[in-house]
Nucleic acid binder design. Structure first.
Lengths: 124, 124
DNA sequence: TTTGTCACTTGCAATTAGCAAGTGAGTGGA
DNA sequence: TCCACTCACTTGCTAATTGCAAGTGACAAA
């Protein structure tokens, strides 16, 4: 088992919370991860999610996630080469975070739609 | 028990994950909440945390958290009036999210310092 | 009177986000 | 062959947010 989630990004401190936020603490990243948990793998699928992520941000976040080791891409066709994006083990292990968020929202945000319990989907 | 975490903020969707991110999904908010979990209550204490939050952002986030019902402020002195900030029940119930983040980081980010298990501190 | 603390505000530059439009490789159809 | 269309991006440009430094006002202590 490789332990990572590394690199390029500057660390504000060594605190577990701060480090995690440096990786996934923004408006969009966790939504992409949510989509992956629920079976989406392709650029277009992420783009089509109802929140409407801008394409430049989607591209940027997929690369950050890849270089952090949370997501891996592999070609699903050639001519032209197209990639699908899937959670790595480190990425999948974010499941409990997602789950606790969904639970919290279900309790404290009125009228929220909770996705049907996190399913750990990895190989289509 | 009041259920809230409402208001002013625009909602991108009704998804539990998206709604929660609209509330606490940025670089700083969860660090303030972390600090509160570990006993900090005053502006200066948050400001002194090692990540070095800018003061305008701290003020802004405290207000957002207050208006979302996650934090309540009360005066701890007069002349001049100074307030302390504490988690409400809704705020305290973010504990499991914080905990799952700390656990994940402990597993997947090397060299991370995990704060000693989340203690639910409310009244000094 | 001066110095210092606390909890902010304000100003402004730098970074990031967000929208629209464009691009290039390919497919399918007339 | 030409045209339209898809997918996965890029690019350009504006708007919004961040982050740093400095300033402010109420007060206490020296």
């Amino acid at each position: 088992m490789r332990r990572y989630a590394n690199s390029t990004s500057f660390k504000r401190s060594n605190c577990a919370v701060a480090c995690t936020l440096d990786l996934i603490g923004d408006k969009w990243t966790l939504l992409i991860i949510r989509d992956m948990f629920f079976g989406k793998t392709r650029y277009k699928e992420f783009q089509d999610s109802e929140e409407g992520i801008p394409t430049n941000i989607l591209t940027n976040r997929l690369r950050k996630l890849e270089s952090a080791g949370l997501v891996a891409k592999s070609p699903y066709q050639k001519n032209p080469v197209r990639y699908e994006y899937r959670l790595t083990e480190a990425g999948r292990s974010l499941g409990p975070i997602l789950k606790s968020i969904i639970n919290w929202a279900g309790e404290y945000i009125p009228g929220v739609r909770r996705p049907k319990a996190s399913q750990t989907r990895t190989t289509g």
